[in-house]
């Protein structure tokens, strides 16, 4: 028993990259050790694919339609994973007594937040693997390697506003309140964004609304990356606008939470 204090020399504290890596590593470990959470992420989009796309010959048999369907389901999986993981996950974490301890360690909020986003991205990608496998084996969906790579990149970019929205919800609400709020937000957004029904089937008025949603913008950009079918002109501005708005919400919610939390 001889260690513990040593009047400290001025050593450099770990930099932001090292800290982010540290948080990412242990968040990943924590997630992986709860296998059901990982499995849920893997299974849900795969099952949806089997039930809704593979049996429909006119979708599954048509290369472009099948690819679009995969894109829509993949995006839905990512929206849902982002909103649930962050909305609910953050709200639950905040209730753990370990959370204030982490906040008192010599690191700002950024490494933890960024690690959270990266960790979510990793598990979203895991969720896409079976989806892509099924699409490849059981439907006519086709992509080249470069299109696939572009698609994966687009998915990660498109997931950012949803991650931010989830974080905003998670820091604003308790876990009990976050769950219904996430559901109420997710399903209308997914429907209006054309993730369940292709937007070609929408009447004009609905299509106008649809093009203003982040889900539609994300879907069309993803379809563009995968099939080359061009997205509507406002897709990027709409996506970036929502991203900025949700980023402001997330940061605002985090700051408010710091001042308000008690006990």
């Amino acid at each position: 028993m001889t260690t513990t204090t040593a009047p400290s020399v001025h050593l450099r504290t770990p930099g932001p990259v090292a800290l982010t890596w540290l948080h990412l590593k242990y968040q990943f470990l924590e997630t992986v050790r709860v296998p059901i959470a990982v499995l849920g992420n893997l299974l849900f989009p795969a099952l949806a694919m089997f039930f809704f796309v593979v049996p429909q010959e006119e979708v599954g048999g048509n290369p472009v339609a099948a690819t679009m369907a995969v894109a829509s389901l993949g995006l839905f999986a990512i929206c849902s994973a982002s909103l649930f993981t962050y909305g609910l996950g953050v709200a639950e974490d905040r209730q753990l007594p370990f959370d204030p301890f982490l906040r008192s360690l010599p690191a700002g909020p950024a490494p933890r937040m960024i690690a959270r986003i990266l960790n979510g991205g990793i598990f979203s990608l895991f969720g896409l693997v079976p989806l892509i496998g099924i699409a490849w084996l059981f439907t006519e969906a086709t992509v080249s390697w470069s299109e696939l790579l572009a698609g994966v990149g687009t998915v990660l970019v498109v997931s950012v506003p949803f991650v931010l929205l989830g974080i905003g919800i998670g820091y604003s609400l308790t876990a009990k309140a976050a769950l219904p709020v996430v559901q109420v937000i997710l399903f209308p957004l997914a429907f209006a964004g054309g993730l369940f029904l292709p937007p070609m089937m929408f009447p004009d008025w609905l299509n106008t609304i649809s093009e203003l949603t982040p889900t539609r913008a994300g879907r069309d950009l993803l379809v563009q990356a995968l099939t080359g079918e061009p997205a509507y002109g406002m897709a990027w501005p709409v996506l970036i606008g929502w991203t900025a708005l949700f980023a402001a919400l997330a940061v605002g919610a985090y700051r408010r939470d710091e001042g308000r939390r008690f006990r």
Binding site: V9, L11, T13, P14, L19, Y26, L105, P106
Partner: peptide
């Protein structure tokens, strides 16, 4: 390891 990783030494 995780908590220690936040400190210089």
């Amino acid at each position: 390891d995780f908590v220690g990783g936040h400190y210089p030494d």
